[in-house]
Simulated assay, not measured.
Amino acid sequence: MSTFSARASRHEPPAVDKNAAIARQQHYLRLADARVTAGDRVAAENYFQHAEHFLRCAIEGTR
């Protein structure tokens, strides 16, 4: 069995660096806030969604 198929068969998510995920979340929140200030609601929503993704990654890293 190849290394890839051995990893895929375990169905384990990759390890998450909680601190990196929190830093990325904060980064995207700052970008979103800047877009809100500029009046670009669509771009802001995109950044808020990215921030939420990294929040979920940080939460998953604590389990």
Results as ranks from 00 to 15, higher is better:
residue 25 Q to D: 04
residue 47 Y to H: 01
residue 41 R to S: 14
residue 27 H to S: 06
residue 23 A to V: 13
residue 2 S to T: 08
residue 26 Q to R: 11
residue 19 N to P: 03
residue 61 G to R: 05
residue 3 T to R: 13
residue 55 L to F: 09
residue 46 N to E: 00
residue 14 P to F: 14
residue 32 A to H: 03
residue 51 A to G: 00
residue 51 A to W: 01
residue 13 P to M: 06
residue 3 T to E: 14
residue 61 G to S: 09
residue 29 L to G: 02
residue 42 V to K: 10
residue 7 R to F: 10
residue 46 N to H: 10
residue 63 R to D: 07
residue 8 A to Q: 11
residue 5 S to G: 05
residue 26 Q to W: 09
residue 60 E to V: 08
residue 37 T to G: 07
residue 50 H to M: 08
residue 15 A to G: 09
residue 5 S to Y: 14
residue 51 A to M: 04
residue 18 K to G: 08
residue 9 S to M: 13
residue 2 S to R: 10
residue 62 T to E: 12
residue 47 Y to D: 01
residue 4 F to E: 15
residue 29 L to A: 07
residue 61 G to V: 09
residue 48 F to Y: 04
residue 19 N to A: 15
residue 39 G to L: 00
residue 6 A to Y: 12
residue 54 F to K: 02
residue 59 I to E: 00
residue 59 I to D: 02
residue 49 Q to G: 04
residue 24 R to Y: 07
residue 16 V to A: 03
residue 7 R to V: 13
residue 57 C to I: 08
residue 33 D to C: 03
residue 23 A to W: 08
residue 56 R to E: 02
residue 50 H to I: 06
residue 41 R to D: 15
residue 45 E to C: 10
residue 3 T to W: 12
residue 61 G to W: 05
residue 58 A to D: 01
residue 1 M to V: 11
residue 5 S to A: 13
residue 60 E to I: 09
residue 22 I to G: 01
residue 44 A to I: 04
residue 18 K to A: 15
residue 2 S to C: 08
residue 56 R to M: 01
residue 13 P to G: 04
residue 36 V to C: 10
residue 39 G to Q: 00
residue 11 H to T: 12
residue 40 D to G: 06
residue 48 F to E: 02
residue 23 A to M: 05
residue 60 E to K: 11
residue 57 C to P: 00
residue 38 A to W: 03
residue 27 H to T: 12
residue 1 M to K: 14
residue 22 I to P: 01
residue 2 S to W: 06
residue 9 S to G: 14
residue 38 A to D: 03
residue 38 A to K: 08
residue 51 A to D: 00
residue 47 Y to F: 12
residue 15 A to P: 10
residue 28 Y to M: 04
residue 61 G to N: 05
residue 61 G to C: 03
residue 3 T to V: 13
residue 52 E to V: 10
residue 15 A to M: 11
residue 48 F to C: 02
residue 4 F to G: 08
residue 32 A to G: 00
residue 28 Y to C: 02
residue 44 A to D: 05
residue 43 A to I: 13
residue 38 A to P: 05
residue 34 A to V: 02
residue 4 F to C: 11
residue 20 A to D: 14
residue 5 S to W: 12
residue 63 R to Q: 05
residue 21 A to V: 08
residue 19 N to Q: 11
